[in-house]
Design a protein around this nucleic acid. Structure first.
Lengths: 203, 203
DNA sequence: TATTCTAGAATGAACGTTCTACCCGTGCTA
DNA sequence: TAGCACGGGTAGAACGTTCATTCTAGAATA
């Protein structure tokens, strides 16, 4: 990775510095996107929120679109990480129930929902974002099916497809339900989803 | 309603004219919103698409936000209309299956999905839009539960809630699945959803 | 001293909105 | 019936603001 010859301290600190700056921008940008949407969030606003000048942001990102892509990528990475942890368990049923509860909480979180919906809406009209989202879906879906195989009883490929699609739809749908009805009781929903997942997985 | 005294011909034609103009703007705006999002669609673009001047749009809508609200309202009215038709059937099972097929096709339509996602994303950050969306959800959900009562076997209120929420989530989730995976086969999905709805309704 | 980091002004385009003026059908006046 | 004043529908220029992006130059660091 490191292409420069140099003292063991300066180079990493310099790149670490850059990494921190980048993260600063992405955090601020995510907050602005949540609040105003991709197009409503101006570079000026992001610069104010990140505590650096507008011009400086262009040292780390070529343009606004690149910031959007980085935010989407971040979100994708987070999902894949959760799937990885789920697959590494030794107690399938218990871990699954914990994961379901966590996922429900996540999907009902207004901030999370706002950002995810913004990403999906952008994907529906921006080919570059759509490509990222679709690549992510393929990976998460493959990972989910693998997880289903590991956790549940043996079943046909078609059955697994059904199961995976149903799960995906139910959790994505939960996100929109949270927006449509903020009075939804998280505990009731969690129990309902745990019941449903148990039945789908034949646990 | 009509406060003016006048020949029976001039007044209605004037208001009809205005209605046509309004519809022209709303159609153009919906297309622009789909393509560019609420904030990406400028008044200039909407005026070009609707074939009238930018300034003239302000004779029919106070500002851009009011256009957005009208579009949301239109979409809401369309949903309530579908529900109404479903409730008026005399052959529950057959009509339900037809409606499911239609709903699946609708949710997988990229244009429809783009607009609905845009609305949901805006609702997640704009209190006025959220209010419209939530009022619509309450009405559609009440109508859905009433429909479930009419169609299926007798069941508890809690059970009906579960059922309605599951249905809503599955169909909203289908919309996002269409965005995430455009290769989804509509017929396979339709069959899966018909199976699922049958089982949920205990038909 | 040389290089990298950083702020902030500058740029030109695009934004939402308002303003001005014209067109044209209608009804009043003579 | 001829001429005229009126008013709504309409286009387009104009306004001030904000946008994304680039440029310039100073500050910090090595």
């Amino acid at each position: 990775m490191s292409s420069m010859i140099g003292p063991a301290e300066t180079e990493p600190s310099a790149s670490a510095r850059a990494e921190i700056r980048r993260a600063q921008i992405l955090d601020a940008a995510a907050a602005c996107f949540r609040e105003h949407g991709f197009h409503g969030a101006s570079i000026a606003r992001i610069s104010r929120a990140s505590g650096m000048s507008a011009g400086h942001i262009y040292h780390y990102f070529r343009n606004k679109e690149e910031i959007i892509e980085a935010i989407v990528e971040q979100d994708v990475a987070r999902i894949l990480d959760v799937h990885g942890r789920l697959r590494a368990t030794t107690d399938p049923e218990a871990t699954t129930m914990v994961c379901v509860a966590e996922a429900v909480r996540n999907m009902l979180d207004p901030d999370m929902a706002a950002l995810k919906l913004e990403i999906l809406a952008e994907a529906a009209r921006n080919a570059r974002i759509a490509k990222l989202v679709r690549a992510a879906d393929q990976r998460t879906r493959a990972s989910l099916i693998e997880t289903l195989c590991a956790l549940g009883k043996a079943r046909s490929a078609e059955d697994l497809d059904d199961c995976a699609d149903s799960l995906c739809a139910m959790f994505d749908g939960l996100m929109t339900r949270g927006v449509r009805n903020p009075d939804l009781d998280a505990d009731t929903v969690t129990r309902r989803y745990q019941r449903m997942v148990k039945s789908l997985l034949q646990l």
